[in-house]
């Protein structure tokens, strides 16, 4: 059975650069503070719609916020 890998992200750095709290970011993207916390520490992987909303809030593309290089490595492996 394939192991589910967690996608890394730059949300914490971007949030601090924009001087936002986790609660403020959560309100802006329509989720809870606990979810933002879990995403930042890599415990939970955001769904595509949520990832898009987060990236759009920072004015970036999804791949600029989330690091999919590990996912590409897994798919490339035989």
């Amino acid at each position: 059975m394939a192991e589910v890998s967690q996608v890394k992200n730059r949300i914490k750095d971007l949030r601090k650069a924009h001087k936002l709290t986790q609660e403020e970011l959560a309100m802006a993207v329509g989720t809870t503070r606990q979810t933002i916390t879990s995403i930042e520490v890599g415990k939970y992987t955001a769904s595509l719609p949520l990832a898009y909303r987060i990236a759009r809030h920072f004015g970036l593309a999804i791949q600029e916020v989330f690091d999919f290089s590990q996912e590409e490595g897994n798919h490339g492996a035989v």
Binding site: M27, T31, T32, Y44, S47
Partner: peptide, 15 residues
């Protein structure tokens, strides 16, 4: 209400 709505619709909690 918005806070309650967000908690209700939270995808992580649904998961």
């Amino acid at each position: 209400m918005e806070k309650l709505y967000r908690e209700e619709q939270d995808e992580r909690q649904a998961f």
